[in-house]
Design a protein around this nucleic acid. Structure first.
Lengths: 156, 156
DNA sequence: CAAATAATGCTGACGTGTCAACAACCCGGT
DNA sequence: ACCGGGTTGTTGACACGTCAGCATTATTTG
């Protein structure tokens, strides 16, 4: 049990700044979405994937792989969105266990109405605030962090 | 209603990488905390502030300012943590509306036990993965984003 | 001083995410 | 053909965060 390596001022500042950004940015995006489109970030994620898919339908498993969600989270979310008319569930022909998730016209309309405002907000609060070098740095850092976490995940 | 300025490949990659990092990093930290210390990130936040405070007690309003939470979020969280014996509520002598929140011995023990492992995880998945220049860039970017969001908040 | 206004903290209702358990189904080996 | 293990999706219980509304108390204003 050795003495922990605490963060020095420089590290602590960066870490706190990141935490602050992540929190406020997520809140700002969520607020804009619900205010202008009556959609949550989770709604938006699913709608984007489905709207970019040929035929606007995907098997639940594929949808899960695309957004990397938990089984039950997807089930709950899909049920709620189905109740609101944004999408529809159908049986899967090739596998009786499966469920197909399909975009409704209302869902398509919702995502098309929401997308421009959302992208504009992403630009305003993030993308347009970084120059090319900062963007590259941030991307490199983010990919490094993700790889590290995934590497640890698999070894256990 | 003009055509929206969609993200180009470079921008989209950086944005998605950031989203991916923020998600996996938050999940990894939360997992480590609950696994090794039976604390949530929210628990940890409150405990850190209280443990760094002279006397280990703070008025609820001050605690709220420190962590920048909603009124009711703090009330719920404090109630739950009080039930678990991590902290204790007392009346405020100088203002009959106020509530003092005070760290218990169990709460102090919990944060002291949790801190080393948490810091180690922050290093492993974030701080130690960045060199000095990247750290500085990230901090500058984060502060810029936060300022932008706050500026928009106040003008409305 | 009295009334209006603001601030503080609490609660209940609701939507969301996680966890464990479950039923239905596919596929492999024997 | 059948049994056993893996997969798929669903559900219920629970913890958490947000919102609107409330009671209580300070503070301002006339």
């Amino acid at each position: 049990m050795t003495e922990p390596r605490w963060l020095d001022d420089r590290e602590q500042c960066a870490w706190r700044a990141y935490q602050h950004m992540q929190r406020d940015l997520a809140a700002a995006l969520e607020r804009q979405l619900t205010r202008d489109s009556a959609l949550s970030g989770a709604d938006y994620e699913l709608l984007v994937v489905l709207s970019e898919t040929e035929g606007h339908r995907l098997r639940a498993r594929e949808l899960r792989n695309a957004v990397r969600w938990d089984r039950s989270r997807l089930a709950h979310q899909v049920r709620r969105m189905e109740n609101r008319g944004l999408l529809r569930r159908t049986e899967c022909e090739t596998d009786a266990r499966g469920t197909m998730v399909e975009l409704t016209d209302a869902g398509r309309a919702a995502i098309e109405a929401a997308a421009p405002g959302h992208v504009e907000t992403v630009r305003r609060y993030f993308v347009d605030l970084l120059d090319a070098e900062e963007t590259a740095t941030l991307r490199a850092v983010a990919e490094r962090v993700v790889r590290r976490i995934h590497a640890d995940d698999e070894e256990c």
